[in-house]
Design a binder for these strands. Structure first.
Lengths: 113, 113
DNA sequence: CCATTTGCTACGAATTAAGTAGCAATACTA
DNA sequence: TAGTATTGCTACTTAATTCGTAGCAAATGG
């Protein structure tokens, strides 16, 4: 399979020719559905089809691509129960978790104006 | 200008037909360079050209598109000194700031295996 | 004035994502 | 144990996004 666009630390990515970790993560997470997949997997392991339902309207092509990228990045893995967050993935989830509450407040103000 | 793909709370976005705030934010930030722009603007106001330098290799087309989206979302704004984070944008930056340290650790383990 | 710098826009090419169909492998059922 | 359903994809075509380069109008500087 083509591996060329897998954001890897130390290799050129969007935002950093030298592959700074934060830019690697931004490149990885800054792709369609990536953060949503991590968000949903926090609720426990999911099969491919279930993940497809959770992410409304995601195409199998894109889901499969994201799964492979996130797996190579060791943020998710596949178990007998389905796809699940790794320890790294869970840590990452915990970091982005506060976005949920913040986003609700942001949305409220968005409407106000 | 075309407004149709501006992720807006309450309107269908990638990941949520009903436009849940967190999915709106994921749609907004899950586009190329979006998080990188916010990251760089934390260092203070930047002109268009300077932002272009900070974000290595970003095309003016994409930068301009992202700027418009983030401006409509009230995360950034334009002042006499250049583009800068709004209060909302600064809050958001503070939330994603820990990703920097985490990413460095993640990258370390990435190499280890 | 005249030269720079700035903030873009235009536009074609390349890359990424969407959408739909369907198939091979596994799990379940009668 | 043969038949049925479910799962995890792949194939393929079309649509949308992003890139890359050129360059121009407006503001700024000398």
């Amino acid at each position: 399979m083509d591996n060329s666009s897998q954001p890897t630390p130390g290799k050129p990515v969007r935002g950093s020719k030298t592959g700074q970790p934060i830019m690697v993560i931004f490149d990885l997470l800054g792709r369609s559905w990536a953060m949503g997949i991590i968000w949903h997997l926090n609720n426990g392991p999911s099969t491919f089809r279930r993940l497809q339902e959770y992410c409304e309207n995601i195409s199998p092509t894109t889901l499969n691509t994201r799964i492979k990228e996130l797996t190579k990045a060791k943020l998710i893995t596949r178990t007998v129960d389905g796809y699940t967050l790794t320890d790294h993935g869970l840590e990452l989830f915990k970091l982005i978790h506060p976005l949920g509450k913040w986003a609700r407040n942001w949305a409220k103000n968005y409407k106000d104006t």
